[in-house]
Simulated scan of single mutants.
Amino acid sequence: MTAATGKRVAVVTGGIGGLGTAICRTLAASGQRVIAADLGRDAARVAAFEAAVDGLDVAFLPLDVADFDACGSFVADVEESEGRLDVLVNAAGITRDGTLRKMDREQWDSVLSVNLDGVFNLCRHAVDGMAARGHGRIVNISSVNGQTGQFGQTNYAAAKAGMHGFTMALAREVARKGVTVNSVSPGYCETALVLAIPEEIRAGIVAQVPVGRLGRPDEIARTVAFLAAEDAGYITGANIPVNGGMFMSF
């Protein structure tokens, strides 16, 4: 816990996005000191995020999760300034859709670099400190499309499926160190990315969801907060689907 506040310290990558903002707000409401990490190149988005978390113990720091060295410096800076890093939520993600026959190398590389390499880059630098302190919570935001596949998303589906493979392997490595590692796989939610889909296509997506609606970012955030809680130490290597029943399995 931070010496100054007595709070656990949480980092949320992709923190100023739709899901990221909801996660930051929910973790802060649960009593944690939260640092949102995102590119920060869009001043309007940063301003909207700061307005959304006004009054909460949330700070913003710029970070490119695809940059391994930058992630190392970021983690070191957080541990120095805050005294520790207890919770890491890897929510940064992008899409560059296209069928494989038309997908170029940049579309593949950029999605894998952010969505999967970004998870490695942050975890690689954060996990030693967590293990040394005997406590840590890592939550990786995967996707229902990593479980089912999706037309035009070989890059995205591969990254999100790979994320959970990474989750299970790391969970085994650090389980006895007091560190849990889990995934959350959201379905289609009310975010800017999904709401930008043409209405007729979006209606077709909703028709496939048994509960009959898009998910709300707060519903994903509550699941993250549950996995990040002090008393969630017996859950590790798990994938929690929050998809309205769009994909069901054991």
Rank of each mutant, 00 (worst) to 15 (best):
N243S: 11
C71W: 06
L39D: 01
D128Q: 14
E80G: 00
P210Y: 03
Q208E: 11
T191D: 08
A158G: 01
D128K: 12
V119W: 08
T2W: 00
G98H: 13
T154Y: 04
T21I: 02
D231V: 03
F151E: 06
R222W: 05
F247G: 11
G83T: 00
D109S: 12
S185H: 12
M248W: 01
E80F: 00
R25D: 05
G20L: 10
A66I: 01
A157R: 07
D69E: 13
I141S: 08
S249T: 12
R172H: 10
A10M: 03
R105L: 14
N121R: 08
E79V: 07
N140L: 05
I201Q: 12
V53T: 14
G83Q: 01
L116C: 05
V65H: 00
T5D: 09
T236A: 04
Q153W: 09
L56R: 13
G40H: 09
I16G: 03
N145M: 14
A47R: 13
Y188M: 11
V65G: 02
R213N: 00
D38N: 12
E80P: 00
R202P: 03
Q32N: 14
L27A: 01
V242Q: 12
A126F: 10
E200N: 11
T5F: 09
R176A: 10
A158F: 14
V144T: 15
R137M: 09
S142P: 04
T148Q: 14
T95V: 15
D97Q: 07
